[in-house]
Design a protein around this nucleic acid. Structure first.
Length: 487
RNA sequence: GGUGGCAUAGCCAAGUGGCCUAAGGCAGUGGAUUGCAAAUCCACCAUCCCCGGUUCAAAUCCGGGUGCCACCUCCA
């Protein structure tokens, strides 16, 4: 099994000492609803975990919640510019919830709900940054003791010049960053690329005591603290979105490795962004979707999941919407999700058809099933090549359907086919939506139509079918009876 | 300005020197099947952004363009 390690920028064979994989996933900031782009990264982590388990590994998976800050320029009101307001504080203003803990609770609940909708398996641990300030303080103390950090006026900074490896992950060199126009100058820092480990601010909405001042931790230390607390000083895998590479993960490596003098993470895996019409999702563009919005548009959790995992994680994924005037408010259909809907229905139809098989003579599809699982694994072993994996799935379905059409499929074959699909879905996780019950009145109409067909009253039968189509139900006539499904 | 990456059919997308006369899916077209449909099966549907180069051989390697994305702003 090979993964592309962002640190070495190479495809590397994946190895672990025992059978346990210690994996840390950079989780969501919980000051707002997570959007689809965020979930692409979390679904990638989930897919990775599921595939590692498919391969027989035990996965100790940790995904954090960030609830101690995170400010961006976009969120600053013009009048507030430079006031150092952070996102939790702004969200508090927006929602009217003034207790930051309560605010984080609200969005954590939403995140958990959305994760469940998307059939994300529960990680082993979901630590919260605000519960681990003590651990962060301890690392900062160690860094100061080791000579990698220094205190100025209650602020503590990481001394970048003490860590020559700085920049190795992102490829940024210190000189180039200094030349960059966007690096802010902070007079307290020794080097422009030093980053804050602790910030002094006794008026802040979330503040803690520390040996240096009352304030709050810097923006990278939380992940080091939580990762090491639960997984030890060296992680096997660390994941995140591509935007985390710099400065977040670069800083994590620096502070963690200076604190422990050990490799922090052996494999760094980064998911690329989901784009909408070729551009980044952003609130200001309006091309920003949440899971619940898509549910309102009639898509299911599985469909959203399928769409988001079906493109290789290291490839920018694009949702083409056809919107040209920038007005996304009326958008009802997204092609990638329509495709996901069709594909999931196809897989489910296949399973349903397999359950109908009653023939006793079997062809024996063991070889086909084995080949399919082998092809799937071979593709996924190659840096989680999901496209190849899905290709194996669809080729299997077509081959088995062909045997069914030729009346060569027996009951045991069908059971084997179902078992194979279920195995694959253990990794994909797209077949979990609850089947909707067809209401009695609809079933009554179906029955009426069947009677009409029996009497060769086809105009009446077609009339009923048209009515049902309008009501959102599709019919499939088969020798075994009529199947009615909600679209 | 620096850094990392991408460019394959209407759309999503695999393949990274010769089984590529380019996987798979969606959409579309034709056919089988069906009372008609649906589902299913079969067939069709691309010379791989442009220009040079290396090679017996390039979507695949190298050079130069062009376009796009990301990071350098605590946005996955």
């Amino acid at each position: 099994m090979k993964f592309y390690n962002s640190y070495s920028k190479k495809l590397e064979e994946f190895t672990v000492e025992n059978n346990t994989v210690r994996m840390y996933n950079c989780g969501p900031t919980v000051y707002d609803y997570a959007h689809l782009g965020n979930f692409r990264s979390f679904l990638f982590a989930d897919l990775l975990r599921r595939y590692l388990e498919f391969k027989g590994y035990e996965v100790k998976q940790v995904m954090n919640f960030t609830d101690v800050g995170h400010m961006t320029q976009d969120d600053l009101e013009p009048s507030r510019e430079g006031s150092n307001q952070d996102k939790m504080a702004l969200a508090a203003q927006r929602t009217g919830i003034t207790d930051p803990r309560e605010l984080a609770d609200k969005y954590i609940d939403c995140f958990m709900e959305d994760s469940k909708t998307l059939n994300v398996l529960e990680p082993w641990q979901r630590p919260r940054a605000s519960d681990h300030v003590q651990e962060m303080v301890e690392i900062i103390e160690k860094l100061i003791a080791n000579g990698n950090a220094y205190e100025v006026d209650g602020f503590v900074y990481f001394d970048q010049s003490s860590f020559p490896e700085y920049g190795k992950l992102s490829g940024n060199t210190v000189e180039d960053l200094v030349e960059g126009k966007r690096v802010e100058v902070d007079a307290r820092k020794k080097n422009a690329t030093d980053f804050a480990l602790w910030k002094c601010d006794d008026k802040h909405i979330m503040k803690w005591p520390s040996p240096w001042s009352t304030g709050f931790p810097g923006w990278h230390i939380e992940c080091s603290a939580m990762a090491m607390k639960y997984l030890g000083e060296t992680l096997d895998i660390h994941t995140g979105g591509e935007d985390n590479i710099f400065p977040h993960h670069e800083a994590e490596i620096a502070q963690s490795e200076c604190a422990t003098h050990k490799t922090f993470a052996r494999y760094w895996l980064h998911a690329r962004h989901l784009l909408v019409d070729g551009g980044k999702m952003s609130k200001s563009k309006g091309n920003f979707f949440t899971v619940r919005e898509l549910l309102d548009k009639g898509y299911s959790g599985s469909e959203i999941r399928y769409a988001l995992i079906s493109t290789h994680y290291r490839q920018n994924m694009n949702f083409t919407t056809g919107v040209t005037d920038g007005d996304y408010s009326q958008l009802q259909k997204i092609e990638a999700l329509e495709e996901a809907k069709t594909n999931i229905r196809r897989i489910k139809d296949f399973l349903a058809a397999m359950e109908q098989i009653e023939k006793d003579d079997n062809t024996n599809i063991d070889d086909l099933a084995t080949k399919t699982l082998g092809n799937f694994a071979a593709a996924m072993d190659d840096d989680l090549n999901i496209s190849g994996g899905l290709s194996a799935l669809y080729q299997f379905i077509r081959e088995v359907n062909k045997l069914r059409d030729q009346e060569q499929l027996g009951r045991e074959d069908a059971a084997r086919a179902i078992e194979t699909i279920k195995k694959l879905d253990g990794v994909l996780g797209v077949l979990c939506d609850e089947e909707q019950q067809v209401p009695e009145e609809i079933l009554q109409l179906v029955k009426e139509r069947d009677e009409a067909r029996l009497n060769k009253n086809f105009p009446r039968a077609d009339e009923i079918r048209d009515t049902l189509t309008e009501m959102g139900y599709v019919l499939e006539d088969s020798p075994k009876g009529t199947i009615c499904k909600k679209i």
